[in-house]
Computed example of a mutant assay.
Amino acid sequence: MSSSCDPQHAPAGDVGTAIMMIDSRLRRVHSGEAATDSEQQEMVDQFAESLGPEGAQELLDGACTLIFMFMKWLRTTHEQVDKDVIEYVVPTLVASMRMMPRSCPPEVIPTMAGLVIAAGTGLSPNLWRQQYGDWTEAEMTPLEATAFLLAEHINRIADDPDFATRLITEALSSADAD
């Protein structure tokens, strides 16, 4: 039985820009660069304004696609060792988000956990979220943080700081080849 949240019904969005933003954040965190939250937020705000409403929606859809792809990889990896991806990924993600109260206010953490659970069970995170109304501004930074934290988790599992980015860029390259 097909679900209204089936990924085949979801727009992929601008996955290339979304992974570029996540990769940039990963590199900055690992390099120890000291950009302040306000400087980073100003750059993100300027970038979002340059996209316009349609481009911002594409980026939002792209971030949800990243979350779906990351969770698909994590689900496959966990199943290979008879572990449940939800049991092992979601508590760690929630704990990490709780340690980031300025980026992830407590009231949006359940939504981000829901996105990850939806993706972990094979549903489209953006279609799952759409059931509950429009995205809120308060959910934008936590959405990016969710994709970032999943990428970082994948990189740690693979013991490779660029693995998550490569995973996505290779998937995009093979999709372009088809």
Results as ranks from 00 to 15, higher is better:
T17W: 02
P101D: 02
L149W: 00
L172V: 13
D6L: 06
N126G: 04
A118R: 03
D178W: 13
E42I: 13
M20L: 10
E39S: 12
E87F: 08
A119R: 01
Q46H: 14
P11W: 01
D160C: 11
T136L: 07
G55F: 14
L172M: 15
G13D: 11
D176S: 13
S2W: 09
G120C: 02
C104P: 00
S24T: 09
E54C: 14
L59R: 08
G32N: 08
G114E: 05
Q131N: 05
G32W: 10
E137R: 06
L74Y: 11
E79S: 10
H153L: 12
G32I: 10
Y88D: 07
T65W: 08
R129Q: 05
L66V: 15
T76A: 12
M69I: 08
Q80L: 14
L93N: 02
T17N: 09
Q57P: 02
K83M: 07
R129W: 01
L149T: 03
A118L: 02
T121Q: 09
Q131L: 07
S3M: 10
D82G: 07
A48F: 09
E58C: 12
I19Y: 01
E49P: 00
C64H: 15
Q57F: 13
H30A: 05
I157N: 05
S103W: 01
D176F: 11
A63W: 00
G122I: 15
T141L: 10
G16H: 06
Q8Y: 11
L60Y: 11
Q46F: 13
A12D: 05
G122F: 09
D178I: 12
M69D: 14
M71K: 07
T169G: 01
A56I: 15
V29R: 09
I67C: 08
S38A: 15
D134L: 03
G133D: 04
L149R: 07
R28C: 05
V29N: 04
Q57T: 15
H153Q: 10
Q57H: 14
S3P: 03
M21K: 12
V116W: 00
G114I: 06
D37S: 10
G120T: 03
A145M: 12
R28V: 03
E58F: 09
M69A: 13
D6V: 10
E58D: 11
M71G: 00
I109R: 01
D37M: 13
M21T: 06
L123Y: 07
P106T: 06
A118Q: 02
T141D: 07
V85T: 06
G114N: 05
E152H: 10
H78F: 14
A63D: 08
E49S: 13
P110M: 03
H78W: 12
G133S: 06
A35V: 11
T136S: 10
L60V: 03
S38M: 12
A56R: 15
S103F: 01
A171C: 12
G52V: 14
H9W: 09
H9C: 04
R129G: 00
Q40I: 14
A56F: 15
K72I: 04
M1H: 07
M20F: 07
E58N: 13
S2Q: 05
S96F: 01
F163M: 10
R166L: 13
E54W: 11
P106F: 01
L93V: 08
E137G: 11
D176H: 12
E87Y: 08
R98V: 04
Y132S: 08
H9P: 00
M112H: 02
R75S: 11
T65G: 02
M43N: 04
A18K: 04
L26Y: 06
H78V: 03
S103D: 06
D14M: 10
N126K: 06
R102N: 08
T141V: 11
